[in-house]
């Protein structure tokens, strides 16, 4: 542990519930270690708030190792903070400097209503998954390995898409609040593999329809999503989603 601690000024979005208005509230945090993770710093703040009898800041977190997609903080104007390819929980206070002001806001998009403070309701993503983000198979005995041949580059590409943790940073960063990167990753991971081909047409049509139904904006190809995605999902998947959609609408029977 470093002996040097920092004093950080926080401006955090506080909002009582879905229907209330909210505002940025300023907190001064002394004794912040550069070795702390960003969420540990918030834990420290909450400890202090609870001791003072105040309402703790609500924020989403679970695995704290960048694999679950639960954390969702818009830090200093960037989804998951200033670093590329990391979630907010993988961010450390050494990224910031002593005396810095850090503004923390929730994801902002109409389909992601704020539940409280920094916690947003991302069940719109679940509903998109529920209409097509799966394959229908009769489960039985475990199939033999390599029974279905899949070329290595295809498997790699599908795996890259499957890395999506559904955190919603793409929506948060997009100026249009578009969910195209998320939906494209979910469509791609199945469209690339033979197991996904049977339901290819129905899947892309249903998932895109649900995406629009939820009120996400349209993609205008700014590629902000790719830049902010903690899993570095490529916008090539959006191109594939567009191909899948055109194929479903115009070519496939």
């Amino acid at each position: 542990m470093s002996e040097n601690t920092m004093t950080i000024k926080l401006k955090i979005w506080r909002q009582k519930d879905r229907n209330s208005g909210g505002q940025l509230v300023t907190y001064t945090m002394p004794g912040v270690s550069p070795d702390m993770s960003f969420l540990e710093m918030l834990d420290l703040l909450n400890l202090d708030l609870v001791r003072k009898g105040e309402d703790a800041v609500a924020f989403d977190h679970d695995c704290r190792e960048g694999i679950c997609g639960t954390c969702s903080l818009y830090i200093n104007g960037r989804a998951h903070g200033p670093l590329r390819g990391v979630t907010a929980c993988q961010l450390h206070m050494r990224t910031f400097h002593d005396g810095e002001t850090i503004v923390i806001e929730p994801w902002r998009a109409k389909p992601f209503p704020i539940i409280k403070d920094l916690v947003v309701d991302r069940s719109a993503f679940d509903r998109i998954m529920a209409v097509g983000g799966f394959i229908s198979v009769k489960t039985g005995g475990t199939p033999d390995g390599n029974a279905i041949p899949i070329a290595k580059p295809v498997a790699e590409e599908a795996m890259d898409a499957a890395a999506c943790i559904g955190c919603g940073a793409c929506v948060a960063a997009c100026k249009n609040g578009s969910a195209m990167l998320f939906v494209s990753a979910k469509v791609s991971q199945l469209a690339l593999l033979p197991q996904g081909h049977a339901e290819r047409k129905a899947r892309v049509e249903a998932m895109v329809a649900q995406m629009d139904e939820e009120g996400f904006g349209n993609c205008s190809n700014t590629y902000a999503c790719e830049a902010e995605c903690p899993k570095n999902i490529s916008v090539e998947h959006i191109a594939r989603l567009n191909r899948e959609y055109l194929r479903a609408k115009f070519i496939q029977e």
Partner: peptide, 8 residues
């Protein structure tokens, strides 16, 4: 799709 804008 984003009725409330970010402060930053």
């Amino acid at each position: 799709a984003r009725p409330v804008q970010y402060e930053v």
